[in-house]
Design a protein around this nucleic acid. Structure first.
Length: 706
DNA sequence: GTCTCGACTTAGCACCTACAGT
DNA sequence: ACTGTAGGTGCTAAGTCGAGAC
C-alpha cells in the first residue's frame, strides 16, 4: 500500500509545498458552488434507506426481466438480435437511399442558380463530388455490427499496412542564424543545434520560464552536446537563442502568408501521405488509422506541475519500432537504410506498430481510428456493460450501504470509496510513482488533505468538501452533503493521520475492482462513470425536452443535458481566450437585432393602418402588410436563435462537452432522442462523430432505453 | 499477494479551416 | 470579398485495468 502512514517529514512538507504552488497557479476551478448545485440537481439518490430498497426492488426486478427480454447484450446472443434486425435493416436501407436522392435533387438547381460565375462552378463541382463521395462512403461502410464476433481474444484474421510515417529529418539552420553563448556566436553540432531549436521555438511559451522545465531541458541538452560544447556551455541563462527564435517565427509567418497555390500544393502532399500511410486493410476492409505518424522529437510538455517537463523527447528510428501485421500480409518496408526492431504477427492485439518512449518508458502505439470496427465493437461492449450495471446497481448500492457498518476496516473503506465513485463519478485512482508525474489523485488515492468535513455547511448537514487535482491536473472542487454513516466513517479514517496520508489506507484499485467483478461480470470502477453519465443524459433529456420546441430550442435542451453530464464528470476547459470579446460581440448583435425588430414592428403597424384606411381591399397594401409580417417574424426568429446561442455559450464557458459526448454517453440515447423529436442528427453529432457511432445510428429506434 | 508492464481508453489543448455575417 | 469565430481535427499525455512475473 503505497504511501500510507510511513510518510516521512520531508515527503509531507513536499505535499504541502506542492499544494501551495497549486493554490497560486491553478485558478481553473469549477465554478465551485454552481457545479456542486448542478451535480446535485441531476443526481439520483444512492442513499435510499434499506427498507426503501427492498420495497422498490420488486418493481425493479420486473422491469429488469423485461429489459433482458428485449435486449441481449454480449457476444453469444448478439447474432440472434442481428438476425431479427436484418429485415428492418433492409427496409431502412432502401428508404434511406430514396431520401438521399430527393435531397440531392433539391440541392443542385438552387445552388447552381445562386452561383453563376465560373470559379463558383468549380466550387460547385467540388461540392457535388463531395456528396458523391459521401454516398460511396456510406455504401462502402463495413457493417461489422451485423457480423458474428471472433472467438475470444482474436481481434483480426488479416492485417496489412504500410508501417508508420516518420517525421522529416532535421534541417540545420542556415549559416546566418547564430546561437550565442555569453555574447559570442557558437556553431553548434547538429544534434545540439536540433535540441537548442526545440527550446528556441518555445521561447514565447510560459513553459520556458519554469525552473523545472529549464533544468530538465538543460540537463538533456548537455547530453546531446559534444564534449567541447559541454565544457563551454554551462549556464542556460547565458544562452541567447534570439536569432533561432526569430527564424522560427519568420518561418511560421511565411507559412501563414503562403499563396493559395502553395497552400494547395502542401495540402496535396499531405493528402498523398494520408492515402499511403493513413489506411490499413483489416479482414478485407479498408480501415482508417488513428495516428499513423511517429511522434516527432521535441521537449516533453507534461500537464500541471510535471517533474519531467522540459526533458528531451528523442527522435524515434525504425530500429525502435515493432511492426504488427498479418502473417500472410506483405510486411511494411522500413525507410531506406533502416530496419524494424521486430516484426510480429499477434492477432490478439489491435495495434499496428509500437515503440517505447524515453520519458516515462511507456509504450506508444499506432492504432485504428475511432470509426473502425475494432474501436467501435469495444465501445458498444462498454455501453452494454454499463447497461448491465443498470440492472443490478440497486443491489450493489444496497450492499455497499450495508458495508458501511462492517467490522472490517478495509470493507468500510471500500464501501465509502464506492459511495463516492457512484455518487460523484470519481475515477478509480490508481497509485502513482512519486516524482514520475504530476501529483494528481483519484478516489482510492485521495489523501487526508484533499477533503474537509463540515458538520454543517450552508444549511446542509454532513458536508464533505473536496479539493484535489485529478487527471490532467484538473482541479476537482465540490461541496457535497453526504449521509451520516459515510460522514462518520470519514472521520474515523482521518483519525491520527497527517494531511499527506492516504485517506483509504486499507484500499487500492485492485482490491476494489476485484470486489466489483465478483458482483457483476465486467464491472470495474470506471463502469460507474459510464453508467451514471449515460443514465443522467437520458433522465435530463426526458426532463428538459418540450414537445413543441423548434430545432434550436431542442439543441439547447440537448446541450444542457450534455452539460449536466460534463459537470458530473468534471470535464473542464480553459475559457476560450476570446470569450469575453466574442460574448460582447454577440450581445451587440442581439441589441442591434432588437432595434431592428421594434422598427419592423412599427412598420407593420403602419402598414396595417394604411391597409385599413383603404378598406382592407387594396391588394397592394395587403401585400405590404404580409411582407412586413414576415419581416417581423424573421427578425423574431433570428433574435431568438441568437439569444439561445448566447445562453448556450455562457453556460458552456468552462465546460467541455466533447469528452462526455465521445466517451461516456451511449450514442443510442442521443440517436433515439433525435428520432423521437425529429431533430436532425447532425445538430448533435458532426461528421466524424457520426462515423464513430455508425453502429448506433444504424441499429437504434426511437424507443431505445438505456 | 504484490508489482510491473502492456494494451487500451479518456483527456484537454493548439492549430486549422470552413463558414456565417458584414 | 473579407474577416472573426466556432467547431473540427490532430496530437499526445494521462488515466484504467488485467495478466503475468516474481
Amino acid at each position: 500500500m503505497g504511501r500510507g502512514k510511513e510518510l516521512k517529514g520531508a515527503e509531507k512538507s513536499k505535499h504541502k509545498l506542492s499544494k501551495l504552488r497549486r493554490a497560486s497557479g491553478h485558478e481553473r476551478a469549477v465554478a465551485g458552488g454552481d457545479a456542486c448545485k448542478a451535480s446535485e440537481q441531476i443526481k439520483r439518490d444512492p442513499e435510499e434507506d434499506d427498507a426503501d430498497f427492498v420495497s422498490k426492488e420488486k418493481g425493479r426486478k420486473r422491469k429488469r426481466i423485461k429489459e433482458e427480454q428485449t435486449e441481449c447484450p454480449t457476444n453469444s446472443s448478439k447474432k440472434t438480435k442481428v438476425k431479427q434486425d436484418d429485415e428492418a435493416f433492409q427496409k431502412k436501407k432502401g428508404k434511406k437511399k430514396t431520401e438521399k436522392k430527393v435531397k440531392k435533387e433539391e440541392d443542385e438547381p438552387v445552388q447552381i442558380s445562386k452561383n453563376p460565375k465560373r470559379t463558383k462552378e468549380d466550387i460547385q463541382e467540388a461540392k457535388l463530388l463531395k456528396i458523391k463521395k459521401k454516398e460511396e462512403e456510406e455504401q462502402n461502410r463495413w457493417r461489422w455490427w451485423e457480423e458474428e464476433k471472433y472467438e475470444d481474444g482474436v481481434k483480426w484474421k488479416f492485417l496489412e499496412h504500410k508501417g508508420p510515417f516518420f517525421p522529416p529529418e532535421y534541417q540545420p539552420v542556415p549559416d546566418n542564424v547564430h546561437f550565442y553563448y555569453e555574447g559570442n556566436a557558437v556553431k553548434l553540432s547538429l544534434a545540439a543545434e536540433e535540441v537548442a531549436l526545440f527550446f528556441a521555438q518555445m521561447l514565447d511559451h510560459e513553459y520556458t520560464t519554469k525552473d523545472v522545465f529549464r533544468e530538465n531541458f538543460f540537463k538533456d541538452w548537455r547530453k546531446e552536446m559534444t564534449s567541447e560544447e559541454r565544457s563551454l556551455i554551462k549556464n542556460l541563462n547565458k544562452c541567447d537563442f534570439g536569432e533561432m527564435h526569430a527564424m522560427h517565427k519568420a518561418k511560421v509567418e511565411a507559412r501563414k502568408n503562403m499563396s493559395k497555390e502553395e497552400k494547395q500544393v502542401q495540402k496535396d502532399i499531405n493528402q498523398t501521405i494520408v492515402e499511403e500511410f493513413g489506411f490499413c486493410l483489416l479482414d478485407h476492409h479498408k480501415e482508417k488509422i488513428g495516428n499513423f505518424k511517429i511522434e516527432p522529437p521535441g521537449l516533453f510538455r507534461g500537464r500541471g506541475e510535471h517533474p519531467k517537463q522540459g526533458m528531451l523527447k528523442k527522435r524515434i528510428q525504425p530500429e525502435d519500432v515493432i511492426i504488427n501485421c498479418g502473417k500472410e500480409s506483405s510486411v511494411p518496408v522500413p525507410p531506406a537504410g533502416h530496419r524494424w526492431k521486430e516484426v510480429r504477427h499477434d492477432n490478439t492485439v489491435t495495434w499496428l506498430a509500437s515503440w517505447t518512449e524515453n520519458i516515462q518508458g511507456s509504450i506508444k502505439y499506432i492504432m485504428l481510428n475511432a470509426n473502425s470496427k475494432l474501436k467501435g465493437e469495444k465501445d458498444w461492449e462498454k455501453y452494454e456493460v454499463a447497461r448491465k450495471l443498470k440492472t443490478c446497481v440497486d443491489d450493489i448500492r444496497y450492499h455497499y450501504n450495508q458495508d458501511l457498518k462492517s467490522k472490517q476496516m478495509s470493507t468500510r473503506q471500500r464501501a465509502v470509496a464506492l459511495y463516492f465513485i457512484d455518487k460523484l463519478a470519481l475515477r478509480a485512482g490508481n497509485e502513482k510513482e512519486e516524482g514520475e508525474s504530476a501529483d494528481t489523485v483519484g478516489c482510492c488515492s485521495l489523501r487526508v488533505e484533499h477533503i474537509t468535513l463540515h458538520d454543517k455547511l450552508e444549511g446542509d448537514d454532513f458536508v464533505v468538501e473536496f479539493d484535489f487535482l485529478g487527471k490532467d491536473s484538473i482541479r476537482y472542487y465540490n461541496k457535497v452533503p453526504i449521509i451520516k454513516k459515510v460522514f462518520k466513517n470519514l472521520k474515523l479514517f482521518m483519525e491520527n493521520k497527517e494531511p499527506g496520508d492516504d485517506l483509504f489506507d486499507r484500499l487500492n484499485t485492485q482490491m476494489l475492482n476485484k470486489h466489483l467483478s465478483s458482483l457483476m461480470a465486467g464491472l470495474t470502477a470506471k463502469v460507474f462513470r459510464t453508467y451514471n453519465a449515460s443514465i443522467t443524459l437520458q433522465q435530463q433529456l426526458k426532463e428538459l425536452t418540450n414537445k413543441g420546441d423548434n430545432v434550436a430550442e431542442m439543441t439547447l435542451s440537448y446541450n444542457r443535458a450534455n452539460r449536466a453530464v460534463a459537470i458530473l464528470c468534471n470535464h473542464q476547459r480553459a475559457p476560450p481566450k476570446t470569450f469575453e470579446q466574442s460574448m460582447a460581440n454577440l450581445q451587440a448583435k442581439i441589441d442591434g437585432r432588437k432595434e431592428q425588430l421594434s422598427l419592423a414592428k412599427s412598420e407593420l403597424k403602419q402598414a396595417k393602418k394604411e391597409a385599413k384606411s383603404k378598406g382592407n381591399s387594396d391588394p397592394k397594401s395587403q401585400m405590404l402588410v404580409e411582407r412586413k409580417k414576415t419581416a417581423v417574424k424573421r427578425c423574431e426568429d433570428q433574435l431568438l436563435r441568437m439569444e439561445l446561442q448566447a445562453t448556450d455559450r455562457e453556460e458552456n464557458k468552462q465546460i467541455a462537452l466533447g469528452t462526455s459526448k465521445l466517451n461516456y454517453l451511449d450514442p443510442r440515447i442521443s440517436v433515439a432522442w433525435c428520432k423521437k423529436y425529429g431533430v436532425p442528427l447532425d445538430k448533435i453529432y458532426n461528421k466524424s462523430q457520426r462515423d464513430k457511432f455508425a453502429w448506433a445510428i444504424d441499429m437504434t429506434e426511437e424507443d431505445f432505453e438505456f
